[in-house]
Amino acid sequence: MNSTKLRRGKSLARRRENIAGWLFIGLNFLGYIAFKLAPLVFAGVLSFTKWNFTSGMKNIKWVGLKNYMDMFKDEAFLTSLMNTIVYSLIMVPVAIFLALIFAVILDKYVYGKGVLRLAFYLPYISSMIAVSLVWMILFLPTNGPVNQILTSLGVENPPRWFNGSSTSLLSMAIVGVWQRLGYNIIIVLAGLQGISASLYEASDIDGANVVQKFLYITIPSLSSTLFFLTMISFINSFQVFTPVKVITQGGPGYSSSVLVYYIYQKAFQYSELGYASALSWVLFALVFVFSFSRMIVDYMGSVKQRKGGTK
């Protein structure tokens, strides 16, 4: 008797939670289906076609799996894929590490926080054309300021930076870090505000120094923020596009060609929309595995647990 009542009460509560949950996400979810999921599915359909979209829906040609088969012998695609992975592996950790340090400093240890924070955020909002021109001039191989300094320091063969096949990707990563830093700093700063002051007070009493506080209080308290930051950073760095388009156009050769830039060229310069859609799905799968592996494992775990529980 008593237990059925309890169960009924529980299921009522659960139903209530369900309704509340769906009400809360409802608005976002509907818009999300219309403006994200639907286009995504559409792009999925397009990946099996050849289509010049100026000629209307009736002229869509089905090509089956051709677009997916083609990419494995597309050397330029494979190079771009490799470049994207290397770029992300360099850029993401560096940008997060620097952002952590700078954010902690900008949070507490400087005068004129507002102005300094703005300065770090500026690269993110400056005109890309200005950014690209200034970087190209600064890193000019022959007589740019950077190489002039290097030469005066005794470096004999200073790198060709954006203009050399071996250094162009690294140079793009430097620009990437420089541009991304302000963005990451803001996220860390927001995270820092959630750390209770009492934790630091307690550590003061224990006589902890700055580094210890950073390692044993700040970083663990930021775990949720850092998780978010890492994922978003990987997602974004896998999709790096504008700096490449404006500064190197993927060159010299294919040395700085990244996936989204390659996809963009295919879709909008060579009118291979179907092939570009197929490439996008590969990128999607890649990021999915790369960034969400932890979440997928978590999710699988929770499903298993639930199934085990009902037994």
Partner: peptide, 20 residues
């Protein structure tokens, strides 16, 4: 032709770059 244009853009620049 798409591939031809793309490859030309990439390969020719390497010559002027002194890398090919």
């Amino acid at each position: 032709q798409g591939k031809l244009i793309e490859a030309m853009k990439a390969e020719i620049a390497l010559v002027f770059n002194g890398e090919s």
